[in-house]
Amino acid sequence: MSKSFFIDTTLCTACRACQVACKQWHDLPAEETENRGTYENPADLSFDTYKLVRMREEVIGGKLQWLFFPEQCRHCAEAPCLDTAGDETAVYKDAATGAIIFTANTKGLNVDEIIESCPYNIPRKGPDGTLAKCDMCLDRVHNGLLPACVKTCPTGAMNFGERSEMVALAKSRLSTVKKTNPKAALLDPDDVNVIYLVTEKPSLYHEFAVASNTAFDITRQVALRRMFKPLTNIVSRLL
């Protein structure tokens, strides 16, 4: 059975505990940042930052919304990065959970190609050329604990469990949220193990919120072995 996250952005308050909990558990160093005219920081995912809450101010239908999107690796069902790497000692799928795991052996591979293959623009290169990203807190999960980001989330925005349970939860929340937000949708739910629920156009949350975002560089898509389906088809197929 694979595991999945369900991230309900309608409940996210951008408290960013998930960002810190991730660093805390993984003993990741802080980055030197500066205020760039936004609360969002660091500016991007990095070798030392696997989780990042994107914060966007948008006026939609005359109403101001502050959209929050806790970004992380989607642990794709058919992960392009894994196929691109082609080395099971460097990138592999954990059989028990479906987690896509990067190891120190990514060093020396063509990491730029691996990065380029990711439809969500997740992997990041370290100073010595190794790659890093969210590891689903596999040590925790294998020992019966929730991933650090999910455990710390106060509101229920972050959820984790058996894929079937998460899919059911995602569907149930979608149908509730749709009553007040007709545009509500799940992002790429069949293809990934990190399912987001959003209420607005995905690109408003973050450039790489969905795989088939139009802002997406065409070369990146070409690099994919399996093309993701267009947005209109994928968002609500679970219903």
Binding site: R16, Q19, V20, P29, T33
Partner: peptide, 12 residues
């Protein structure tokens, strides 16, 4: 604390 300063590094 570096982790918190990373999130909010400067007065605004």
């Amino acid at each position: 604390q570096a982790w918190l300063l990373e999130l909010q590094p400067q007065v605004f």
